[in-house]
């Protein structure tokens, strides 16, 4: 029998996060989504179609948008740069483009509920209220570099580097106190 000995960056804060839903009467829920598979995909315009076909998804070409295909979500990071979330198994073999498994680079914090946007506004300069559906953005949240992505109706996923995760979690827990 194999024992899962992985420890996620915020695994020790599950109880503190769970109490937020109680404290806010369900207006805000925060939970870590640990071990989310993340692939960094680099492809020039000439290899874009091949990359999408091999990965079995569509790659957004509109800046700061997201395309979901089945259980995979592709986030635009740059004109030749994407982050693919979800799925499992080894990454496919690229030809003329590149893919790197960066799952351990960042952990995911999922905020949901009607108070999620207001909480993030304490430390994020982007006007998250005015984002459309299926948006993403690389920006700063409370001085930490993050990748944000929004999913209707009221869910926002914050991807933060593992080494910044406990700092950002502390900031979020503190910001909840001001609500």
């Amino acid at each position: 029998m194999t024992v899962d000995q992985r420890r996620s960056p915020l695994g020790g804060l599950a109880e503190e996060f769970a109490q937020i839903a109680v404290r806010t009467g369900g207006r805000l829920r925060i939970a870590e989504q640990p071990y989310l598979r993340q692939l960094n995909v680099r492809a020039g315009a000439d290899a874009l179609a091949a990359a999408a076909a091999t990965l079995g998804l569509a790659l957004p070409t509109t800046p700061n948008t997201v395309i979901r295909t089945g259980d995979l979500t592709a986030l635009w990071l740059g004109p030749d740069d994407w982050l693919v979330l979800g799925g499992q198994g080894p990454e496919p073999t690229p030809v003329g483009w590149g893919v790197v498994d960066v799952s351990a680079q960042r952990t995911a914090i999922v905020l949901s509920g009607p108070a999620a946007v207001g909480l993030l506004a304490h430390g994020c300069a982007l006007d998250l209220e005015r984002m459309g559906s299926d948006w993403c953005a690389q920006t700063m949240l409370a001085r930490a570099n993050v990748v944000l992505s929004g999913f209707p109706p009221d869910e926002i996923r914050v991807l933060v580097r593992a080494s910044f995760a406990s700092y950002l979690a502390s900031w979020l827990l503190d910001a909840v106190m001001a609500m």
Binding site: P63, A137, M140
Partner: peptide
């Protein structure tokens, strides 16, 4: 040119 208006700190 890609992301639109952002704060100088970015």
């Amino acid at each position: 040119p890609w992301c639109g208006p952002r704060n100088e700190t970015e």
